[in-house]
Amino acid sequence: MISKDALFALSLFPYLGFLWFISRSQQMPRLALYGFYGTLVFVGVTIPAGIYAKVHYGKALANVDWLHGGAEVFLTLANILIVLGFWQAVKQLKQKIATEKNHL
Rank of each mutant, 00 (worst) to 15 (best):
L19Y: 02
V41N: 04
A6K: 10
G44V: 04
K96L: 12
K96P: 00
S3A: 09
V73R: 10
A98Y: 07
P29E: 05
K54M: 12
I82F: 08
K96W: 12
L77M: 11
V90S: 08
L93M: 11
W20R: 15
A78C: 06
W66D: 14
I51T: 09
R24V: 00
L19N: 04
K96Y: 12
R24M: 01
L12N: 11
T99D: 13
A60F: 13
A98F: 08
V83P: 05
Y57T: 14
L75A: 13
Q26N: 15
L61S: 03
Q26P: 03
L40K: 04
F74W: 12
L104R: 13
L16I: 12
L19S: 02
F36D: 00
V41L: 11
K101N: 11
V55I: 15
A89H: 13
P29F: 03
E72P: 03
V45A: 08
S3T: 15
Y34C: 08
G69P: 05
H68P: 01
A49R: 04
L10V: 07
Y37Q: 04
Y34H: 13
L31Q: 13
S3R: 02
A71Y: 02
F86D: 01
L81D: 00
Q95E: 14
T76D: 07
T46A: 12
G17C: 14
K54R: 15
L10Q: 04
F42Q: 06
A71R: 05
Y52T: 14
W87D: 10
F74T: 05
A32Q: 03
F13T: 15
W87Y: 13
Q26C: 05
F74G: 05
V41K: 06
L31V: 04
L104V: 07
A6D: 07
G17W: 15
L31H: 04
V83C: 09
G85W: 08
A49K: 02
H68V: 05
Q26T: 11
L67M: 09
L33K: 11
T39Y: 09
L75S: 11
P48R: 03
F42S: 00
I97S: 09
I22A: 09
I2N: 06
I80D: 01
Q26L: 08
K59G: 00
L84W: 11
L31R: 15
L104W: 10
V45R: 01
K101V: 09
N102G: 13
L16K: 00
T39A: 07
F74R: 02
A62C: 08
A9D: 06
G69W: 10
K4G: 10
E100G: 09
V73D: 00
L16A: 14
G70P: 08
T39L: 15
P14L: 08
I47V: 15
R24Y: 05
L40Y: 05
L10Y: 11
R24S: 11
D65L: 12
V55C: 07
K96C: 04
I47S: 00
A60R: 12
